[in-house]
Amino acid sequence: MQAFEYASPKTLKEALALLGSGWNDAAVLAGGTDLLSLMKDGVVAPKRVVNIKEIAELKGITKTATGVRIGAAVTVDELLSNAIVRASLPALTQAAHGITSPQIRNMGTVGGDLCQRPRCWYFRAGFGLLPKHEGTDLVTEGDNRYHAIFGDGAAKFVSASSFGPALVALGAKVKLASAGGTREVDAAKFFVAPSNNDAREVALLPNEILTEILVPVKAGEKSATYEVRQKDAMDWPLAAAAVTLTMKGSTVASANIVLGHVGPTPYWAEKASSMLAGKAITEETAEAAGKAAVEGAKPLSHNTYKVQLASVAVKRALLAAAGVKS
């Protein structure tokens, strides 16, 4: 790990003043579960590290007029044990439970989950987001068993965020602050498929801090997250689905289906979402939506298995959200 300066400001304003215009000028430290590993592996080498855990403005989960505000420095464990979230946004509670290490849940933050870098092993080995070596595309020509099955661009890593799919499905916004002001970005637009190695996988700029997540709570809306994983513990899902359902009686008025870990951003399954309108959620309709959700998937040489996993994740998330026992 390269040496760096360290600061632990008490206010957001002080923290923002310590950031620079480039990613190497300063890195934001919250839980540290990703940043420290990236620095140890030399993937990033910031000149300064700014700890944001002492900033009160970034903490707390509160009800707002339209939903719930989650401070970016709220830990995964705090989110998991929060009664407001559990009652009104079960998809988020379920995603938090999917982060299966108690240590990561105690240390890691919600903002950090959204900003964590991809787990692609070529990226982690220093080959960049669009890894190439001597002209060879490392992902398509190499071991891509955990890589993307969706996405037309050059990026073949998968977004590692556990909360991303649920936040996109719920229509959440994230707040990004810089010394010059604050902007709100739709969760769906926060995640970006980079088209070159200098671009990032999130909309955050080097001089910005993600300060809070605003999640709308709509009366009667149901939600769920279902993750498919290789092991019970200590790994990212192979595929995940987050769904929201607004019901009209026993049939669906509107649905949102978002897949996770299948592409460089959470993937909104548009056709599968719209085809559920007017139907009841049953084994059959949920399975059909799961099949529709993975239409157009383009698996790589080693990850065709993910198509089926993603399809089943959609089915099970829909059944869970609707409360149908399978």
Binding site: L36, S37, K40, Q103, I104, M107
Partner: peptide, 27 residues
Amino acid sequence: CDRGTCGACSVLVNGKVSYACSILAID
């Protein structure tokens, strides 16, 4: 592992189990 994965470095921080390899001493 020194990468916040294996748990061999577990300590309690304010009573919560945490990976000591992924906490800066200064922090």
